[in-house]
């Protein structure tokens, strides 16, 4: 089993925060369009990103050693949510659903932030030689 490095943990926490931010942005956009006729509620999907993460360790193939290795995309694409009931004006935004999404994203962000802060505290501890 691979050893989990500090760097990997920091990167993963950073990604989690990034995703929470994107979820929150998209939910805010949905809320803003609560009354726009024909607007379809959007969501961010990170399924492909997770797939990439599971394959991590196998770096991108390079045709020349001078090329950069590439970065794992941590950005999801916003897609329209399927299967939501549309109102008479074609709008599919549900107020409670979006507020719930925002609160959930806020919680995820907070969790990652707490973990990251703990990590940084350890680093600081090491820098200050335990003082």
């Amino acid at each position: 089993m691979n050893e989990i490095t500090d760097r990997a943990i920091l990167a993963a926490l950073g990604r989690q925060m990034n995703q929470a931010v994107q979820r929150q942005s998209v939910a805010a956009g949905n809320l803003a369009n609560l009354d726009t006729p024909g607007y379809k509620a959007r969501t961010v999907s990170f399924g492909d990103v997770l797939e990439d993460e599971l394959q991590a360790g196998a770096p991108l193939a390079r045709t020349s050693p001078g090329h950069l290795g590439g970065i794992t995309p941590a950005d999801g694409a916003a897609t329209e949510v399927e299967g939501l009931a549309a109102r008479r004006d074609g709008n599919t935004v549900q107020l409670d659903r979006e507020l719930l999404n925002m609160t959930r994203a806020s919680g995820e962000f907070g969790a990652a932030q707490t973990a990251l802060a703990a990590k940084f505290r350890l680093v600081r501890y090491a820098i200050n030689e335990g003082r």
Binding site: V21, A32, E98, M102, Q113
Partner: peptide, 18 residues
């Protein structure tokens, strides 16, 4: 609802600044 959303976003930014 949008005011609530702004409050939630502000909380997130606050957490990031911490």
């Amino acid at each position: 609802a949008n005011l609530t959303a702004i409050g939630l976003i502000r909380d997130t930014i606050q957490r990031a600044l911490e």
